[in-house]
C-alpha cells in the first residue's frame, strides 16, 4: 500500500517537474522567437487572427450583455440604498477587474484552447511533429512558441476590448433607464478607476493567457499514438485551464486585497 502511494507520488512529482521544464522551455523559446529563423512568423499571425480577431464578435456580444446586466442589477439594488453613484465603482470592479479577464479567458479556452490541443494532438498522431524534427525544426520553437505568444497577446487585447464593450453596454442601457451624457458617464468612470484596477485586469489576462496556452500546448503534445486520444486532449485542456484560471484569479485577487 505504502509502496503504491510512494510510486504514485513519485510519478506525480516527475510529471510536475516535466511540466515545469516544458514551461521553462516554452518561455525561453518564446523570448527567442523573434531572433530565430522566421518560418514560424506565419503561425504567430494565424494564431492571433484565430484567437484574437475571430473572437471579437462573441467577446463584444458577451461584454455588452454583461454590462447591461450589471447596470440593471446595480441600478435597482444600489438605488434602494441611495447609493446610485456606486454604480460606477461596481462597473469598474466587476467588468475591469473580474469578469473582463475571466470571461475572456473562458472564451479563449473554449475556442483556442481546444483547437490548439486537438490540432497538436492530431499532428502527433499523424507523425507531423516528427517530420518537423526530421527537417531540423524545433517543434517548441516553431509550433508552440507562436501559439503561446499569439494566445497571450490576443488575451491582453481581447480583455481591453471586453472592458470597452462591457462599459459601453452599461452606457447603452443607461440611455434607456436614466439618460446620462457620454462625457459625464466617462468622467464618472475615470473618477473611480485606479491604476491598480487597470494593472490588476491586465495582470490577470496575462496570467490567464499563459495558463491557457501552456496547458493546451502541453495537452496536445502529450498525445501519444491513437487518434482517440485527440478529443480527450481537448477536454483535458479545457478542464485543466478552467481550474487553473479560477485558482489564479483567486490568488491574484487575494494578493490585491490582502497584500
Amino acid at each position: 500500500m505504502l509502496e503504491r502511494i510512494g510510486r504514485a507520488l513519485r510519478e506525480r512529482l516527475r510529471d510536475l517537474f516535466y511540466g515545469l521544464g516544458f514551461f521553462a522551455n516554452l518561455v525561453k523559446e518564446s523570448i527567442l522567437f523573434f531572433r530565430r529563423r522566421q518560418v514560424g512568423f506565419r503561425v504567430l499571425v494565424m494564431q492571433i487572427l484565430f484567437t484574437g480577431y475571430e473572437a471579437l464578435r462573441i467577446s463584444a456580444v458577451l461584454a455588452m450583455a454583461i454590462g447591461v446586466a450589471i447596470n440593471l442589477i446595480g441600478s435597482s439594488l444600489l438605488a434602494g440604498f441611495g447609493q446610485g453613484k456606486l454604480m460606477y465603482t461596481l462597473l469598474i470592479i466587476v467588468v475591469t477587474r473580474e469578469l473582463g479577464p475571466l470571461l475572456t479567458a473562458f472564451i479563449v479556452t473554449a475556442r483556442s484552447g481546444t483547437a490548439i490541443a486537438t490540432e497538436l494532438g492530431g499532428m502527433v498522431v499523424a507523425h507531423e511533429i516528427e517530420a518537423y524534427v526530421a527537417v531540423g525544426v524545433n517543434p517548441i520553437s516553431y509550433l508552440a512558441a507562436p501559439r503561446f505568444l499569439g494566445v497571450v497577446v490576443s488575451m491582453l487585447v481581447l480583455t481591453v476590448y471586453f472592458n470597452v464593450f462591457g462599459l459601453f453596454g452599461s452606457f447603452a442601457v443607461m440611455q434607456v433607464l436614466r439618460p446620462v451624457g457620454f462625457q459625464e458617464y466617462m468622467r464618472n468612470l475615470v473618477e473611480v478607476l485606479t491604476v491598480g484596477d487597470l494593472l490588476s485586469g491586465l495582470a490577470k489576462s496575462l496570467i490567464f493567457g499563459v495558463i491557457v496556452s501552456t496547458v493546451s500546448i502541453y495537452r496536445g503534445f502529450a498525445v501519444e499514438r491513437a487518434s482517440t486520444e485527440v478529443p480527450v486532449a481537448g477536454i483535458k485542456a479545457v478542464g485543466s485551464s478552467f481550474v487553473l484560471i479560477v485558482l489564479a484569479d483567486a490568488a491574484v485577487t487575494a494578493v490585491q486585497y490582502l497584500g
Binding site: 490540432e119 492530431g122 499532428m123 499523424a126 507523425h127 507531423e128 516528427e130 517530420a131 518537423y132 526530421a134 527537417v135 531540423g136
Partner: peptide, 21 residues
C-alpha cells in the same frame, strides 16, 4: 551542428507525414 545534420539528411516517413494544414 544539429541544424547542419538535419540539412544534410532527409527522412521518408512510412505514412508520408505531410503537414496537413
Amino acid at each position: 551542428e544539429e541544424l547542419e545534420f538535419h540539412r544534410l539528411s532527409g527522412f521518408v516517413f512510412q505514412d508520408a507525414a505531410l503537414w496537413a494544414n
